[in-house]
Amino acid sequence: MDSDNEKPRKKKRRPHWIVRGLGPSFTACMGFVISVLYITFPCAWLATHVSVAYPVASAMLLTGTLVTFLVSSFMDPGILHQGPPWPGTAEVAYVIVNGQRYDMDWCSRCEIYLPPAAWHCRRCNACVDRFDHHCEWLNNCVGRRNYRVFLLFLLLLTSYLLLVLSSSLFYLFLTLLTLHQPFSLPHATTVVVMVTSLACVVLVLVILISNIKLISNGEPSSTIEPYFEPDDKNPFDQGCWKNWTHVLCSPTGPRYTTSLIQTGIWGL
């Protein structure tokens, strides 16, 4: 059959903006409800009878969590150009990682060669540099440019949930076991807050520990397959200290990293 008679491939449409917003909306509503119940009952009682440090620390951690959540959601994760940055067919389609040559994969959707650890996100319909995963709770990819903010968000969220959990437990211990108050609505609400916070902190801790392990081992991504054989030495691993220095202190990167593709060099 001639190519002229072939039907053009239909591009996959992104989900409706209402569907894409369900994850972030649920995350924000869950955090808002837990925070309101926590501040209204256990935190207010501890601030009055124990110390004002509880609401101050809670407010600081909650503010930091909210700011990093919004930045991670709206920041460009490192979306690459769509379409080849040069006319015609590329003659050089490889990169060099610490002296080792690797052939780049071709993305037929964006029509570009992908540098190491880059991947095409089907949800966003775009290639993302140093793609880690697409976070439904943020409605955004986690890539090179927003990875540090995402790590800070996980750290602040974990600290806030642990503070809520420990403060609520301390409140129940003081009021029920020490002061022998009858079990009432504030205590029942505190139990709900504790159970919800415990479930959330376990999930977030798993993600945080997984990312800490990846950074320490120099793994470029947690989602896509590595660009080296299992028996070979990881070319991205520069040692634990240098790996963390590279992740935390390296430049954020340009909004469009075509220079990395054009030069054919990926230096760490």
Score class of each variant (00 low, 15 high):
residue 99 G to T: 07
residue 46 L to T: 04
residue 49 H to S: 05
residue 65 T to I: 05
residue 57 A to E: 10
residue 39 I to W: 03
residue 106 W to A: 02
residue 37 L to Y: 08
residue 61 L to Y: 06
residue 77 P to T: 09
residue 85 P to N: 03
residue 54 Y to N: 02
residue 89 T to P: 08
residue 93 A to D: 07
residue 69 F to L: 13
residue 71 V to K: 09
residue 71 V to R: 09
residue 57 A to N: 07
residue 101 R to W: 08
residue 102 Y to M: 11
residue 75 M to H: 12
residue 82 Q to N: 14
residue 79 I to K: 14
residue 46 L to N: 02
residue 90 A to D: 10
residue 60 M to G: 15
residue 98 N to A: 13
residue 84 P to D: 11
residue 79 I to N: 01
residue 67 V to A: 11
residue 98 N to L: 06
residue 101 R to A: 13
residue 66 L to H: 07
residue 63 T to D: 08
residue 56 V to A: 14
residue 54 Y to D: 05
residue 100 Q to C: 07
residue 70 L to I: 15
residue 59 A to Q: 05
residue 87 P to T: 07
residue 73 S to L: 08
residue 38 Y to V: 00
residue 87 P to H: 04
residue 106 W to T: 03
residue 63 T to G: 15
residue 61 L to T: 10
residue 69 F to C: 06
residue 93 A to G: 06
residue 103 D to K: 09
residue 88 G to C: 04
residue 52 V to N: 09
residue 55 P to R: 05
residue 44 A to T: 11
residue 72 S to I: 03
residue 60 M to T: 15
residue 73 S to I: 03
residue 53 A to F: 11
residue 96 I to W: 15
residue 76 D to Y: 04
residue 83 G to M: 10
residue 69 F to A: 11
residue 97 V to W: 00
residue 91 E to G: 12
residue 76 D to M: 08
residue 86 W to N: 14
residue 91 E to W: 00
residue 38 Y to R: 01
residue 76 D to T: 07
residue 55 P to K: 05
residue 66 L to E: 02
residue 94 Y to A: 05
residue 37 L to A: 10
residue 44 A to W: 04
residue 51 S to H: 10
residue 91 E to P: 04
residue 106 W to N: 03
residue 99 G to I: 07
residue 84 P to V: 08
residue 74 F to Y: 12
residue 50 V to I: 13
residue 54 Y to E: 01
residue 68 T to A: 11
residue 61 L to M: 15
residue 96 I to A: 08
residue 68 T to R: 13
residue 81 H to D: 10
residue 48 T to R: 15
residue 47 A to V: 00
residue 61 L to I: 08
residue 78 G to Y: 00
residue 45 W to G: 01
residue 91 E to K: 10
residue 40 T to R: 14
residue 50 V to W: 15
residue 85 P to G: 02
residue 82 Q to M: 11
residue 45 W to R: 07
residue 96 I to T: 14
residue 65 T to M: 11
residue 44 A to E: 07
residue 51 S to V: 01
residue 72 S to V: 02
residue 52 V to A: 11
residue 37 L to R: 03
residue 37 L to D: 04
residue 95 V to K: 06
residue 54 Y to A: 06
residue 90 A to M: 12
residue 88 G to A: 04
residue 75 M to L: 13
residue 78 G to L: 05
residue 61 L to D: 10
residue 87 P to R: 05
residue 68 T to S: 15
residue 48 T to P: 01
residue 67 V to R: 04
residue 81 H to P: 02
residue 66 L to Q: 03
residue 102 Y to P: 00
residue 48 T to G: 11
residue 103 D to F: 13
residue 61 L to W: 03
residue 40 T to K: 14
residue 43 C to F: 07
residue 103 D to I: 07
residue 90 A to I: 01
residue 73 S to D: 00
residue 39 I to T: 07
residue 57 A to Q: 06
residue 91 E to I: 09
residue 98 N to K: 12
residue 39 I to L: 14
residue 62 L to T: 12
residue 82 Q to D: 15
residue 67 V to S: 04
residue 37 L to Q: 03
residue 47 A to W: 08
residue 94 Y to M: 00
residue 51 S to F: 06
residue 61 L to N: 08
residue 92 V to H: 15
residue 80 L to G: 02
residue 38 Y to E: 00
residue 39 I to K: 02
residue 68 T to P: 04
residue 54 Y to V: 14
residue 66 L to W: 13
residue 79 I to M: 12
residue 53 A to H: 08
residue 38 Y to G: 00
residue 84 P to Q: 11
residue 48 T to Y: 14
residue 105 D to T: 11
residue 55 P to N: 08
residue 51 S to R: 03
residue 62 L to W: 10
residue 53 A to D: 11
residue 72 S to M: 06
